[in-house]
Nucleic acid binder design. Sequence first.
DNA 1: CGTTTGTTCGGTCGTACGTACGACCTATTT
DNA 2: AAATAGGTCGTACGTACGACCGAACAAACG
Lengths: 197, 197
Amino acid sequence: MRTKKTIVNPSRKILSTAIACLSEKGYANVSMRDIASESGVALSQLTYYFKNKEGLFTEVIHEMMAQYLQEMEDTMKSAVGAKAKTASLISYFKDLVKEKPKLLRLFIDFTAQSLWVPSFREQVDHLFCRLTEMIEENILKDTEMSANLDGYSSASIARYILGALYGTSIQIMLGSDKTSAFESFQLTDSLFAAREL
Amino acid sequence: MRTKKTIVNPSRKILSTAIACLSEKGYANVSMRDIASESGVALSQLTYYFKNKEGLFTEVIHEMMAQYLQEMEDTMKSAVGAKAKTASLISYFKDLVKEKPKLLRLFIDFTAQSLWVPSFREQVDHLFCRLTEMIEENILKDTEMSANLDGYSSASIARYILGALYGTSIQIMLGSDKTSAFESFQLTDSLFAAREL
DNA sequence: CGTTTGTTCGGTCGTACGTACGACCTATTT
DNA sequence: AAATAGGTCGTACGTACGACCGAACAAACG
């Protein structure tokens, strides 16, 4: 029998509800029942579409990763030149903190969970790799860094930039004042000011 | 009646067991019963000494914070001059990843949890503030940064340095190869190379 | 001595969890 | 019309959870 799409795919509804719940209450505080009742679907449907809890949450990570990578890529592709791309990367993280804190919280929470759940770890590690690759491609390639950065592989530099933006985001996220702290982001620009070739 | 210390304070035993469990299995995967049986103490003792789960874990965070701050301070105080202190800070984070991954995992996990539990958040935020203050005091004070860092407050710079080290640590922690990635840490030294006054 | 106060313990309560199962219903296929 | 397959649902199972209680014990003190 063909897969029908009568009105709206239930598995999509479950998935989006799961994302909403997780980004609002956190991994440790969300149950399958929460997601079921919130999405107006029987509990057994969750296991029907996604085997078990880990299966469902794996799919959530997958979704989250896709959104991250897509948005990040769009952001950087829209700018031309390493310097402009750096600026757009910074503003994307600012936007993340200010306008999309839920997505960011989801990211942070899953990063922590991935320390304990091997299958999550694999996914999140992959996400970090893709992100650093993207930074390498867009910002570090065809660019000569300031002199004191000789000897560092572009992979190391990219990892550092991503780490700095991510780590700074977390601090701002936790802090009480979200405004004055934004200055830190800008440091990426000053530190890695690229000279175009 | 006086608090006795017959052989070893049970609350200490509970606490250290809790730390061990948490740094091995993660917040979401540890129950009060786990800690009780692991520490060879009745479950009811946990609530006797620490009100409830949140009370116990609050104490664990407190312990973790103290260790972090102490070790970090010792590390930096042992070096003289901003440049040497920077190097010692870097090597402390390397040491964390390589030799004390449990403590680091504890830190990361609680950071994520603090996104959802207000009392945790307060504590972890305070930890971050203390750490940035320490970086300001030891590395940024009485030091002239390279020219392109004008206009940034020392608080912003400290936050960025901490964020970079923290964010890089997470990536290395998740990655498969722990060796080649250590190069990234060193970037802190090159980027914030201080000229002594 | 007995009382009081701090400590330890086993046990239980109510609830929540993830998962599994069987009964439907509907639409397609034979 | 009968059979089959996809989808939905309610419910129940077994386990685990945090919290709580009352009984026992221990130590100080009158």
